[in-house]
């Protein structure tokens, strides 16, 4: 069996120069690193033999208040251990290094995150919209996203009938 999250945290902590935080509360523990050191930490995770994270399972982001928290889920087939890397980006500088050179699966995952959140992945070979049309305006999965009332000449304003239904309760 591979390393536990705490052991991986120790490794990263010894390697990194800047602040690394182990977030153990919640169901999945995660390791939070800074965007500045992100690229080197990821390379370290991929290439050091004790860790050998050979696959990137998932890459996503969550819009929390005024930051965008990015998540990378790594897994190692050789050691059978996994880790969640977390990195918070401020909304005025939504850019981070791309990891496509380390994991090919990052290509589409990053395109999807770019498409839905508008994160600029530096060094990505082909950063275009993936799911939405090329001419789509805005990034739908941000919490402040407003559904456009007009797209490509098609009217999208809610009809009277749909207005008459009760809107879903927001908070209980």
């Amino acid at each position: 069996m591979g390393l536990s999250v705490a052991e991986i945290f120790d490794h990263i902590n010894r390697f990194a120069n800047q602040e690394v935080i182990l977030k153990e509360e919640g169901p999945d523990p995660s390791i939070s690193i800074t965007a500045y050191e992100f690229s080197s930490v990821m390379r370290y995770l991929k290439e050091v033999r004790e860790m050998d994270f050979d696959t990137l399972m998932s890459q996503t982001a969550v819009h929390i208040d005024d930051t965008l928290v990015m998540y990378w889920h790594l897994f190692s087939y050789s050691h059978r251990h996994k880790v969640v890397i977390e990195c918070a980006l401020p909304f005025d500088d939504l850019s981070i290094d791309s990891v496509t050179t380390l994991w090919k699966s990052a290509d589409w995952l990053e395109r999807e995150t770019f498409d839905l959140f508008g994160v600029d992945f530096k060094g990505h070979p082909d950063l275009r919209r993936l799911l939405l049309p090329e001419d789509w305006v805005g990034y739908p999965l941000r919490k402040d996203y407003q559904t456009p009332m007009l797209y490509g000449g098609m009217d999208n304003t809610p009809s009277e009938i749909s207005q008459s239904f009760k809107p879903p309760k927001k908070e209980r």
């Binding site: 509360e25 919640g26 169901p27 999945d28 995660s30 399972m57 998932s58 996503t60 969550v62 998540y71 889920h73 969640v84």
Partner: peptide, 22 residues
């Protein structure tokens, strides 16, 4: 569910489907 995030994989016919919940 309590505050936090989780990533759970399940073996579906088309490979593992991962659900990331926050």
């Amino acid at each position: 569910p309590p505050q936090g995030h989780i990533y759970v994989r399940t073996e579906t016919p088309r490979g593992d489907t991962g659900y990331f919940l926050y």
